[in-house]
Design a protein around this nucleic acid. Structure first.
Length: 219
DNA sequence: GACCAGATTGTCT
DNA sequence: GACAATCTGGTCA
């Protein structure tokens, strides 16, 4: 992968993908209904640039967490120190520590003060694959970003990025067109299912993933 | 493939 | 003190 950068945009040339310069997703994207945002995020590209290099993946699995009638949501019992970023402006990162070992990455949605977010559960690796392999300590492509804890490690996302805006900067969300020739999945290829790893409100259909994509965490 | 135990610690009750 | 939006590596089929 070669990587060139100027003031306005970033170009990446890869044997498999041609990445083109477009604008990151705008604020309005995140202000729709949270389940809608979760669905629309499929196909979008999460990018992280660090000193070690650039890593990026196409989103293939998400979950929505709602402020009302959703006891599985961290915001369900109101604002605390931990979930404060969820109540902040939309279009920003909400990163939390889980199971004593891992971090999960979310995108804040709706409006400031509401407390809703979309958990990014799986990515299809697009750029910086050697870097991801190094960070994940495995060469198996399907094991790089197929889970919320895994993709945080693969992209080198750190908890100090909690609350950071995703509209610009090192950690950002790009539209599907960021990868030339690619677009959002066709609606008929989006599967709606129950969320994973929760006990409360486990029956709500708030998980979305791309049908037959091998990078999805669980089928 | 399915199922299960163990790791490990911040957060909230 | 219980629990958690997880992952890994083991067993068994």
């Amino acid at each position: 992968v070669t990587h060139r950068k100027n003031r306005a945009c970033t170009f990446i040339f890869d044997a498999k993908w041609l990445l083109i310069a477009v604008m990151p997703l705008p604020l309005e994207f995140y202000q729709a209904r949270t389940a809608t945002v979760a669905r629309r995020l499929l196909g979008c590209v999460l990018v992280h640039e660090t000193a070690a290099g650039l890593a990026a993946g196409r989103i293939v699995e998400t979950e929505a967490y709602l402020s009302r009638n959703d006891p599985a949501c961290h915001a369900h019992n109101g604002q605390t120190l931990r979930n404060a970023a969820m109540f902040g402006p939309p279009g920003r990162a909400y990163i939390y520590f889980i199971y004593g070992m891992y971090h999960c990455f979310n995108v804040v949605t709706a409006r400031e003060g509401v407390g809703e977010a979309v958990l990014i559960r799986a990515l299809e690796p697009i750029a910086g694959i050697p870097l991801m392999q190094q960070r994940r300590k495995t060469d198996v492509l399907q094991n790089l970003c197929g889970g919320p804890g895994k993709l945080v490690l693969a992209l080198g996302i750190t908890p100090d990025q909690n609350g950071q805006p995703l509209l610009k900067g090192a950690l950002r969300m790009e539209p599907p067109e960021w990868v030339q020739g690619h677009s959002a999945p066709h609606p008929k290829n989006i599967v709606t299912a129950r969320r994973i790893g929760i006990t409360r409100a486990a029956d709500l259909p708030l998980r979305f993933y791309e049908k037959n994509n091998p990078h999805v965490s669980r089928r």
